[in-house]
Design a binder for these strands. Structure first.
Length: 500
DNA sequence: TTAGGGTTAG
């Protein structure tokens, strides 16, 4: 941060101001007056204020003192809300968790430990992860099966599925026995990270021992569908029947979705008809799957027909159904027609969620109608649906594409000062945009963004480092380039050390 | 967080 400030002051083009840390937050909220149980509606405000305080504080001792103040009524919900708000600043989130661990009267809930473990695993901070597990165990709060699921998922998404399996197999060493449920979880973790063959091998080895049930088979059906191997998925369905298990609606909906995903539209339709013929209780998920599937395939008329007929059959669309339809209208029809459906759902009393808004906003951006997109973003706020990191990322991306870099940076500034922290995507989008105008100052911003993202626990790709380095060298910023080079070697050491 | 339906563009 210090370096960043220095660089900002040295060069001082106006848009570098975006990267200045905000001044310390005036902490004068309702929490100053002690109340035995704060009313629930005030909690979000309190969480937001505390998160800002944690983010802007540079003095851990003073922060600890504030966090330990008896005026704050700590609850697991409050702690978890703050951890979620600080999600995209992992180091700060862990600092908060650790400072609060020394509170004189409050002790962390297992769910908060799980959040902290998830964050340290994502940061690939193994000492921190080990310490958290050790502390959780000493306090006899876990690790729970959920803790293992979190760690396994982090390994799988970090491209280390073998380690995920090892975590599952080592559960009993931590006093946590493997059962059917945890078996299904590890299968699901592997399948969702597309390691379906590995999941299947594990399934074959242990299906007898854990008495694989309908859920185990459904997980495997979904796995094969995710990698578009619908024949294998169908085989799983047949095998489950052979073993005396009855497929349920989830099994069929999964298979149906698989056909659409694999582009087998005719098979999907036949499967849907077969479901109807067999008196399967077709539900809102079935219809949503068909509407989305047809739409993605460009068959808007058929999607609309299914959308219209579901109500006649006594199945009410859900917000997800509207979202599916709105998405495909934006992509394969027109944004205007999508907005018609959007307004229709509002009239009918549905409450659009952030996904709904993001779909419409994306549609408008894609058409180049940034003004209307921003109007929808305002409407989103007015409706009490705060724009999330995806909303910001998509609008920032389109502003950058249109060459409106300053507008993109304006939005980024709003994120940093507000309550939606930028994520890895945000930094990547903005850093790439800093090369568009071929302005030397933009390269300095890119460098500062790189420093800030590392500060927040993100590891930039080698490509990003090289690009910024080259840019800085070409624009005569040798000193800054050296600094970035040091940062890169620090990150390199960090990535090589990964061993959760 | 034991399973199924809506946010990504290239």
């Amino acid at each position: 941060m210090q370096t960043q400030k220095m660089l900002t002051q040295r060069t001082n083009p106006s848009h570098l101001l975006y990267l200045r840390p905000t001044k310390s937050y005036p902490f004068t909220t309702a929490t100053a007056t002690p109340t035995p149980t704060p009313p629930p509606p005030q909690q979000p405000l309190e969480a937001a204020a505390l998160a800002t305080l944690i983010l802007t504080s540079s003095n851990p001792q003073a922060l600890a003192q504030t966090l330990h103040s008896p005026t704050i009524q700590w609850t697991p919900q409050l702690v978890n809300t703050i951890l979620k708000r600080l999600w995209n600043d992992g180091p700060k989130a862990l600092q908060f968790f650790n400072l609060l661990s020394h509170h004189p009267s409050y002790s962390h809930h297992p769910s908060s430990f799980d959040h902290a473990i998830d964050i340290s695993a994502r940061l690939r901070d193994s000492p921190s992860l080990r310490s958290l597990i050790y502390r959780m165990r000493s306090a006899r709060l876990g690790p729970t099966p959920k803790t293992f699921a979190i760690i396994a998922e982090r390994y799988a998404s970090a491209g280390k599925p073998h380690r995920a399996v090892k975590v599952f197999l080592s559960m009993h060493q931590f006093g946590c026995f493997q059962d059917l449920q945890s078996f299904n979880t590890i299968l699901d973790v592997l399948c969702k990270s597309k390691r379906v063959e590995m999941a299947y091998n594990l399934f074959k080895v242990f299906k007898g021992k854990f008495r694989a049930d309908c859920v185990s088979y459904n997980v495997m059906v979904n796995g094969w569908c995710l990698i578009k191997r619908t024949n294998k998925a169908l085989e799983m369905l047949k095998e489950m029947v052979k073993r005396g298990l009855t497929p349920n609606l989830t099994s069929y909906n999964t298979m149906l979705k698989g056909y659409f995903r694999a582009g087998q539209i005719n098979e999907a339709w036949d499967f849907f008809l077969e479901m109807k013929k067999r008196d399967c209780e077709i539900d809102v998920i079935t219809y949503t799957t068909v509407i989305h599937g047809f739409g993605v395939a460009g068959e808007i008329k058929r999607a609309r027909k299914v959308f219209d007929t579901m109500v006649k059959k006594g199945v009410l669309p859900s917000v997800a159904t509207y979202n599916a339809f709105i998405q495909v209208l934006c992509k394969k029809d027109s944004v205007d027609n999508a907005i018609v459906i959007f307004e229709e759902m509002v009239v009918k009393g549905y409450v659009p969620n952030s996904i709904t808004y993001n779909l419409v906003i994306r549609g408008l951006c894609h058409r180049g109608d940034m003004e209307r997109a921003m109007e929808f973003m305002g409407r989103m706020k007015d409706d009490g649906c705060e724009p999330n990191v995806q909303t910001y990322n998509l609008v920032i991306r389109y502003f950058c594409d249109e060459g409106e870099i300053d507008k993109a940076l304006d939005l980024f500034q709003k994120m940093t000062s507000g309550d939606c922290l930028p994520n890895l995507d945000t930094y990547n989008i903005l850093i790439s945009a800093m090369f568009v105008r071929k302005k030397s100052d933009d390269l300095l911003v890119a460098g500062n963004l790189l420093i800030e993202m590392v500060d927040r626990g993100f590891v930039p790709r080698k490509f990003t480092f090289n690009r910024v380095l080259n840019g800085l060298l070409l624009t005569g910023n040798q000193g800054f380039a050296k600094e970035i080079l040091r940062l890169q070697s620090r990150c390199g050491r960090l990535t090589r050390k990964i061993k959760l």
